[in-house]
Design a binder for these strands. Structure first.
Length: 811
RNA sequence: GCCGGAGUGGCGGAAUUGGUAGACGCGAUGGACUCAAAAUCCAUUGGGGGCAACUCCGUGCGGGUUCGAGUCCCGCCUCCGGCACCA
C-alpha cells in the first residue's frame, strides 16, 4: 500500500482543478496558444488500461505546456453517433441516445479519476442537434460547391451491417467494423468529391514535417498519383468510341487487345442484339455481384471476347475487345489497352486466352515467360524504336497530342468519399427529393433536420428512417409540392472531420464557429490518436479543413501541425479491446496504487509510439518511487543540516539542473519513459546523499526537491500537488512555472576518461572536464593497466578526443 | 509481390551526433531490521574463466568501412504494420 492516502488526495485535487477552473481557457492574443487535442473518443463506456495510457499522454502535455506558460486548450468531446449504440438498441430496445449519454457520463467520471483535465465548457457530442446541425450546414456548402453529389455506382455493401461503406472502411475485402465480406452493389449514393482535392492533399503532405513518416507514406500510397496518358479508341464498324488510361503510352505499339470493366456502360451497348449478348451479359452480371475476395480467389484472369474490335490509333491495327473483371470501373476510365509484353496482368490474361504477345521493350537475353516491366530500348514500336522509356513516353504523348487523339493525364487511386449510410444512429442528410425540382437542399434556416425517434432500429437494406412517414413526407422547399426527405444518414467520419474546429467556439448558435476564434487556436499544435486512422479520419479531416479554408472560414490549410500516433496496450500480444474480452479494468489498481502510480507506469512502460504489453508488476516500481518521494518530502529522512552549501551540495544542485535539462528535452521529444527514469535517478541520488555522512544542507534539499516536484507535476499530478502544498506553498502547482536550468551549473565538472587500446576499453580514469589532449595522453600512458598493452606491441598511432576518450593503435 | 518499421540480459527497455553496451524499472539472490511477516533499507545481478588483479565472449546472421560500429554500407534471416488486379 502507498505511504499516503491516495484516494483522499486524488479526490481533493480533482475537485480543486475543477472548482477553480484551472484548465478552462479563453482566447488571449497576448499569450502564445497551445492547442492540444486527442482524437475524440467513441463513448464506449468503461475505460480500460489501454485508454488510460492514451489519455495520460494528452494530459501530460496539457500540464507541461501550461507550466511552460502557454495558453493551453485541451478540450474533450464525443464521437457519439455510430453503430455500437444502434446495435445495442436493437438488442435491448433502449434508445441509442439514452444509451450513449449514459456511456458519456461514465467516461467523464473515469477521466476525472485519472486526473485528466480539460476545458469542459467546450465539451461537444456529435449526436446532439446542436452539433449535427452544423454537419448538415457543412453538407449544404459542399452541395453548393458541387462537392457533394448523388450518383449510382458500384459501391461496397456490408450484408451484416446492412449499409454501404466508404472505400477506406473496406480492409482486405472485409468490413472494417464487423469483419464480414463486402459485396458490390449498384446503388445511388451520396459522395463527397474528395478527388477534387487529391493533388492538394498529396502536395501538402510535404508541409507536415512533424507527422510520422509512416502516416505520410500511407496517405501518399492511398492517394496514389500516377502520371500517364488518356486516349480515345474507336470501335471498328461502329460510331462508338471509348477512352483508355495508361501509364505506359510508350508501349502502345504492343497492344494486342483491349479490355472493358464488367460495369462499363459500353459493354451492353456493344453486345445488344448480337450472338454474344447472353453470355457476356451473364459474365458481367456475375462479375459485378462477386465480392472482391471471390474475384481474387479465382486464380487466373477471367473474361471473354465481346465480338468487337477496337482500332489502335498509332498503327491502325484492329484488336479484339474483351470484358474482364481485372479491369476496375472505378479507376481510370474503366477500360484499358492491353500490352501483355509489358504488363504482367495482361500477360496472364493473354496466356489464358491464347492472345498474341508483342514485346515493345528489349528485355535482357535470358528473360522469358513473363512481362518485362523495367526500362530498356523500345522495339517493334515504329518511330519509337531505340528510345528508352522516358524519351519514348514524351515522344508518343506529343504524337497523340499533335493529332488531338490523346493527352497527358494524372490519375489518382483515391476514390470519392461515399458518405451515405443506411443506418439510424447518424446525422440526417439535409436533402429533399422533389418529383419536379429534383434534389433540393433544406434551407439553412430549417436546420437542423432532427433525427426522429423510431420504433424499430433493425436495418432492412434501407435506413430505418424510411419507415417514419412523418419524417419522410415533406413539402418541397422550392415549389411546395409533395416531396420526400433523404433517409440515409451520414458516415460518422463526417462528424469527426471538423469537430476540432467546433471546439474553438462550441456554443455558437449563429455559425458553425467564429472564424476569429478558430484563427486564434488553429492549427492544432499537438494531435494525438491511433495510427488506425492514418487514411480514414486524418485524410477526411484534412480534406474538410481545405474545403472550409476555400470557403473563407479557416486560415490554415492543414489542421494538425504535429501528429503523434500512440501505440496500443496489449494483453497476451493482442490489443486490449472489449470485444476481444482482454481488457484490464483500472478500478482495483486505482484503489491499490492510485492514479499517479498508474499514470507513471504507463509513461514508463516504453516508447509511447510502441505497443506495450501490460504487466501488473511494473506498477509496483512506480508506486515505490512515488512512496520514496512522498517520504522524502513529508518526513525527516536522513540528514538535513542547517549550513552553508558545501561541495556535496553543489554537486547535488548540478545534478538537479542536469535532470531538468534532460527531462525537458525528453518530454519535448516524446521520450516519456526516459524522463521518468531520469526523475527516478534524481530521487535516488537525493536519497543517497541524505543518508550519506555529509547529508544535505536544508537549503539545497529544498531547492532540489522543489525542482523534482515541479517536474513531477505533469506526470503524477496529485501527489506532487499535495507535496507542494504541504511544503508550505500557497500556490496551485499546476500554474507554477516549469523549472529552468542553469547551463553553467548543469555542466559536468569531471568525466570518465576511457582509455582504449585498439578500440577495446582497458582503463577508466576520472578527470576534470577541462583536461587538455596532452594531459589525457600523459594520464593514459602513466597508468600501468595501459602501459602493459603499449609495452607489448608496436605503437602505430593514437586518437585523442578529450576529455573522455583516447585510443592507442598498437600492432 | 511492393513500401515502411523493428530485432539489445530472465523481462520491459536505455544508449539523442560513430566514442564506456545494458541507464531506469521489474524479477531474482544474499543481507539488515523484526518474535515473525509485510513494508523499508543495503549489496549483487549479460555469459564464461580466475582466489584476485584481470581476461575472453557478447546488441538476429554473414561480410565491409573505420583508430573505434547496437549506431554507417552491402547481402541474408525473422517478426510486425501498410498497400495490393490501380492499367
Amino acid at each position: 500500500m502507498p505511504a499516503y492516502d491516495v484516494t483522499a488526495i486524488e479526490r481533493k485535487w480533482q475537485d480543486r482543478w475543477e472548482s477553480e477552473r484551472t484548465f478552462y481557457v479563453t482566447e488571449d492574443p497576448e499569450r502564445t496558444k497551445f492547442y492540444n487535442v486527442q482524437m475524440y473518443p467513441y463513448p464506449s463506456g468503461d475505460l480500460h488500461m489501454g485508454h488510460l495510457r492514451n489519455y495520460g499522454y494528452l494530459d501530460l502535455l496539457t500540464r507541461y505546456r501550461r507550466m511552460q506558460g502557454f495558453n493551453v486548450l485541451a478540450p474533450m468531446g464525443w464521437d457519439s453517433f455510430g453503430l455500437p449504440a444502434e446495435n445495442a438498441a436493437i438488442q435491448t430496445g433502449i434508445h441509442p441516445r439514452v444509451f450513449t449519454e449514459e456511456q458519456i457520463a461514465r467516461m467523464k467520471v473515469q477521466l476525472r479519476r485519472l486526473g485528466a483535465v480539460y476545458d469542459w465548457d467546450r465539451e461537444l457530442a456529435s449526436h446532439t442537434p446542436e452539433y449535427y446541425r452544423w454537419d448538415q450546414w457543412l453538407f449544404l456548402r459542399l452541395f453548393e460547391r458541387g462537392l457533394a453529389y448523388k450518383k449510382k455506382s458500384p459501391v461496397n455493401w456490408c450484408p451484416n451491417d446492412q449499409t454501404v461503406l466508404a472505400n477506406e472502411q473496406v480492409v482486405d475485402g472485409r468490413c472494417e467494423r464487423c469483419g464480414h465480406e463486402v459485396e458490390k452493389r449498384d446503388l445511388e449514393q451520396w459522395f463527397f468529391r474528395i478527388t477534387d482535392y487529391a493533388d492538394r492533399l498529396l502536395a501538402d503532405l510535404d508541409q507536415l514535417t512533424e507527422w510520422p513518416d509512416r502516416v505520410r507514406t500511407m496517405q501518399e500510397n492511398w492517394i496514389g498519383r500516377s502520371e500517364g496518358m488518356t486516349f480515345t479508341m474507336e470501335v471498328a464498324g461502329t460510331e462508338r468510341t471509348f477512352e483508355v488510361f495508361t501509364t505506359r503510352p510508350d508501349t502502345v505499339f504492343g497492344m494486342t487487345f483491349a479490355v472493358l470493366a464488367p460495369e462499363h456502360p459500353l459493354v451492353s451497348e456493344l453486345v445488344d442484339g448480337t450472338e454474344y449478348e447472353e453470355e457476356v451479359g451473364r459474365y458481367a452480371a456475375a462479375a459485378r455481384k462477386a465480392t472482391e475476395i471471390e474475384r481474387l480467389a479465382e486464380g487466373g484472369k477471367t473474361g471473354m471476347f465481346i465480338g468487337r474490335h477496337a482500332t489502335n490509333p498509332v498503327n491502325g491495327r484492329e484488336v479484339p475487345i474483351f470484358v474482364a473483371d481485372y479491369v476496375l470501373m472505378t479507376y481510370g476510365t474503366g477500360a484499358i489497352m492491353a500490352v501483355p509484353g509489358q504488363d504482367q496482368r495482361d500477360w496472364e490474361f493473354a496466356e489464358d486466352h491464347g492472345l498474341e504477345i508483342i514485346r515493345t521493350v528489349q528485355p535482357p537475353d535470358d528473360w522469358a515467360g513473363k512481362a518485362y516491366l523495367d526500362d530498356g530500348p523500345a522495339i517493334n514500336s515504329g518511330f519509337l524504336d531505340g528510345l528508352w522509356m522516358a524519351d519514348a513516353k514524351k515522344r508518343i504523348i506529343a504524337w497523340f497530342e499533335d493529332r488531338g487523339l490523346g493527352y497527358a493525364t494524372v490519375q489518382y487511386r483515391l476514390r470519392d468519399w461515399l458518405i451515405s449510410r443506411q443506418r439510424y444512429w447518424g446525422c440526417p442528410i439535409p436533402i429533399v427529393t422533389c418529383p419536379t425540382c429534383g434534389l433540393v437542399p433544406v434551407p439553412d434556416e430549417d436546420l437542423p433536420v432532427v433525427l426522429p425517434d423510431v420504433e424499430d432500429y433493425t436495418p432492412k437494406g434501407q435506413s430505418p428512417l424510411a419507415a417514419v412517414s412523418s419524417f419522410v413526407e415533406v413539402d418541397c422547399p422550392r415549389c411546395g409540392g409533395p416531396a420526400r426527405r433523404e433517409t440515409d444518414t451520414m458516415d460518422t467520419f463526417v462528424d469527426s472531420s471538423w469537430y476540432f474546429l467546433r471546439y474553438t467556439d462550441p456554443g455558437n448558435t449563429e455559425t458553425i464557429f467564429s472564424p476569429d476564434r478558430a484563427a486564434y487556436w488553429m492549427p492544432v499544435d499537438q494531435y494525438i490518436g491511433g495510427v488506425e486512422h492514418a487514411v480514414l479520419h486524418l485524410l477526411y479531416a484534412r480534406f474538410i479543413t481545405k474545403v472550409l479554408h476555400d470557403h473563407g472560414l479557416v486560415t490554415v490549410e492543414e489542421p494538425f501541425a504535429r501528429l503523434f500516433t500512440q501505440g496500443m496496450l496489449t494483453l497476451g500480444g493482442k490489443a486490449m479491446s472489449k470485444s476481444k474480452g482482454n481488457v484490464v479494468a483500472p478500478d482495483a489498481f486505482y484503489q491499490r496504487y492510485g492514479a499517479d502510480a498508474i499514470r507513471l507506469y504507463e509513461y514508463f512502460i516504453g516508447p509511447p509510439t510502441d505497443d506495450a504489453e501490460w504487466s501488473e508488476s511494473g506498477i509496483d516500481g512506480t508506486s515505490r518511487f512515488l512512496d520514496r518521494v512522498w517520504r522524502m518530502g513529508s518526513e525527516e529522512v536522513g540528514e538535513l543540516v542547517d549550513r552553508a552549501p558545501i561541495g556535496a551540495d553543489l554537486e547535488m544542485l548540478a545534478e538537479a539542473h542536469r535532470t531538468v535539462k534532460k527531462v525537458t528535452e525528453d518530454i519535448d521529444r516524446f521520450s516519456f519513459n526516459t524522463a521518468v527514469a531520469s526523475l527516478m535517478e534524481l530521487s535516488n541520488s537525493i536519497g543517497a546523499r541524505l543518508r550519506s555522512a555529509e547529508g544535505l544542507a536544508r537549503e539545497t534539499f529544498d531547492a532540489v526537491f522543489d525542482m523534482l516536484i515541479r517536474m513531477l507535476a505533469p506526470l503524477a499530478p496529485h501527489v506532487s500537488h499535495e507535496l507542494w502544498e504541504r511544503r508550505g506553498h500557497d500556490t496551485m502547482l499546476a500554474l507554477e512555472s516549469w523549472p529552468s536550468w542553469d547551463e553553467t551549473l548543469a555542466e559536468e565538472t569531471s568525466v570518465t576518461l576511457v582509455v582504449q587500446v585498439n578500440g577495446k576499453v582497458r582503463h577508466r580514469i576520472e578527470v576534470p572536464t577541462t583536461v587538455t589532449a596532452a594531459e589525457v595522453e600523459r594520464l593514459a600512458r602513466d597508468a600501468p593497466q595501459v602501459r602493459r598493452w603499449l609495452d607489448n606491441g608496436n605503437e602505430r598511432s593514437v586518437v585523442v578526443r578529450p576529455p573522455n576518450l583516447i585510443n592507442f593503435v598498437v600492432d
